[in-house]
Design a protein around this nucleic acid. Structure first.
Lengths: 130, 130
DNA sequence: CCGTCGTGCAACCTCCTGGTTGCACCATCA
DNA sequence: TGATGGTGCAACCAGGAGGTTGCACGACGG
């Protein structure tokens, strides 16, 4: 079901990304991953004020959103950032912002035109022209 | 005066916007506002499957994030979208995505260099020494 | 002036989310 | 083979977010 907003660049994926990005701990996690490359959940947990399990849950959310991916190396799982989903969401947001600006400009123009027409109409009725 | 005037293009404002955007009902609300211009909470509630009170709460969140603003007109309060905060967040996200790409490229290059060095070192120890 | 419409506040409820602990399992290394 | 370190799963908990209802108050129109 597409066609909600005119600016559609993968709206389905955007939902997950926005939800994932809403949490500051997850953003910190992404920051850590972006800075350090491939990191295991345990290593990440050491850099955060939460337990490994909490980190694992966050990583699951981020993975579901397509923001990270993990692959097994021996007995540990290394996670890394996935720019594609973030990039798509960024583009979506830029398009949305542009859309807002455009709509806002249009609406304001219409409002002003309506106001002017009203004023002209009132003047016409008041002046008794016709 | 809950709206913030986007002084810094940093994490503080972005945090609120992302949290606000994470909720689908709020996105729908923004969509409605962007499409219709100035709308009251009651009018918005009629287009959504929630009560007016729920809409008001969402509008409060959006206002706190700087995404909308409301002004009183007679006995009703008209809300409208505020592109500035969204635009700033979009820019932040674009920059972040670019950063990820850059860091990722750097890390991969370093990893490959390290691998090569390691291989060379091993070769040196194996072949060159003795 | 009185009825109505829209708002604002407050109490309350439910469910989801972020977080923890405990434990079992598997891979690695001495 | 046994100790260790990392993972995965499940139960459990607290708090907050989204939502509702009820009511009081201010603005508008007849």
């Amino acid at each position: 079901m597409t066609g909600e907003a005119g600016t559609d660049s993968g709206a389905a994926a955007v939902d997950g990304v926005l939800a994932a990005l809403a949490d500051p701990t997850r953003r910190k996690l992404l920051d850590l991953l972006a800075a350090r490359g491939e990191v295991s959940a345990t290593a990440l947990a050491e850099r955060l004020p939460v337990t490994r399990q909490a980190v694992v849950k966050h990583l699951a959310v981020l993975d579901a959103a397509g923001l990270v991916s993990g692959h097994r190396v021996g007995r540990e799982v290394r996670y890394e950032v996935r720019p594609a989903a973030l990039d798509a969401t960024a583009r979506w947001m830029v398009a949305l912002a542009a859309d807002w600006d455009r709509r806002l400009a249009t609406i304001k123009r219409l409002a002003e035109a309506a106001e002017a027409a009203e004023a002209a109409d009132a003047a016409e009725g008041d002046d008794g022209r016709g």
